[in-house]
């Protein structure tokens, strides 16, 4: 069998992930310990709400600890240093930031505040205009491309709203 290639992520990224997971699991364990035990109701101590999250927090702590030890081992031996793209090695950092801004802005801010059709039209139009790269040479052709984006955005906004709301009777945000 052709197995997927061994991990291409740098040991530094693994180390950082392990530290985040260790902090998370420690937080989960502490929170679990603080959950009610209903002693005043004399409930069975093995049914308390904090038991299972505590066990899971402990399991994640052990696994994250193994990841930490492994990444440290890789860093010490030099095997994992600089290998792979790491976490932030995304092609086109500006594009990635723009993408994050657009998607989170639409899903997190516009939807629910603006009318759905308007928010969707703005999002789709901006997305196409900002990310379309292989543009034609003449300004006239470029204007044609922008007009096409405008039409697509309008069709998507109206079409999606129609299909969800009128065909499948689903409420829109």
């Amino acid at each position: 069998m052709q197995e997927p290639s061994p991990t291409s992520v740098s040991a530094r990224a693994d180390l950082f992930t392990a530290l985040v997971l260790l902090a998370l699991s420690a937080g989960v364990i502490l929170e679990s310990l603080g959950m009610p035990r209903y002693e005043e109701r004399a409930v069975n101590p093995f049914s308390v709400p904090g038991l299972v999250p505590g066990v899971l927090g402990l399991a994640l702590l052990v696994l994250a600890g193994l990841l930490l030890l492994r990444s440290l081992a890789a860093l010490r031996s030099g095997a994992g240093r600089g290998a792979g793209p790491g976490l932030l090695g995304v092609a086109g950092g500006l594009d990635a930031a723009l993408l994050g801004l657009l998607t989170l802005g639409y899903g997190g801010l516009l939807v629910g505040r603006l009318p759905f059709r308007l928010a969707t039209f703005l999002f789709v139009f901006l997305f196409i205009v900002l990310f379309e790269r292989d543009l034609p040479a003449t300004p006239r052709q470029r204007a044609g491309r922008a007009l096409f984006a405008f039409v697509q955005a309008a069709v998507v906004a109206l079409g999606v709203a129609y299909v969800f709301e009128d065909v499948f009777l689903v409420r829109l945000p």
């Binding site: 999002f123 997305f127 697509q152 409420r171």
Partner: peptide, 20 residues
Amino acid sequence: VPRERLMPVVFVLCTIGSFA
């Protein structure tokens, strides 16, 4: 269909699908 024209539609469907 180029990805720049497909992906915004996918994301709109993701958004409304989660809400629905």
